[in-house]
Simulated assay, not measured.
Amino acid sequence: MFVVFAAYQFFGQHAYEEAASSLGIGLVFDPFNTDQPWNERPLWQKIWLFVHLAIVALLFGYGVGIADK
């Protein structure tokens, strides 16, 4: 739900910092099995979590750097 809300904030409201924070909150609520240790997770889950984190960082950097006028 936080990913959908972040997309609305990004595309609908052009609120980049708020979209980054919503995606960050969405990352806290790991959608995968939290009882499974990191080393035992499939590669695609690890990649998705790192991509999600990279998008949060890019949105935050964009909101603070370029879109801050």
Rank of each mutant, 00 (worst) to 15 (best):
W44M: 09
F11P: 01
Y16T: 10
D35S: 13
G26K: 02
P37R: 13
V28N: 06
L43P: 01
D68R: 10
F11E: 07
V3Q: 12
Q13I: 09
V64W: 06
L23C: 04
G24F: 01
V4Y: 10
W38P: 01
Y8M: 11
I55H: 01
F32Y: 15
Y8A: 12
V56C: 11
V3S: 13
V4M: 12
V56S: 02
F10T: 07
V64C: 05
G24T: 00
F11M: 10
Y62M: 04
E18K: 08
A15L: 10
W44P: 06
K69F: 11
P42E: 08
P31E: 08
L58C: 10
I25P: 00
D30C: 08
S21L: 10
A57V: 12
V3F: 09
H52A: 09
L53A: 15
F32D: 15
Y16H: 08
W38C: 05
A54I: 06
F5A: 15
G12S: 12
M1S: 15
H14C: 07
A20W: 00
V64E: 08
Q45V: 09
F60V: 02
Y8F: 12
S22V: 00
G12W: 02
P42Y: 03
D30I: 01
A67M: 07
L27V: 02
G65V: 03
V51G: 07
W38F: 15
A7K: 08
R41Y: 05
A7I: 07
W48S: 13
G26R: 02
F50C: 12
P37V: 03
A67H: 02
A6G: 07
V56A: 07
I66R: 04
F32L: 07
H14V: 06
W38L: 12
G24Q: 12
A7G: 11
V28P: 01
Q13F: 02
S22T: 14
N33K: 12
E18A: 15
L53W: 04
A67G: 03
K46Y: 06
G63A: 04
D30T: 06
F2D: 11
S22F: 01
G12M: 09
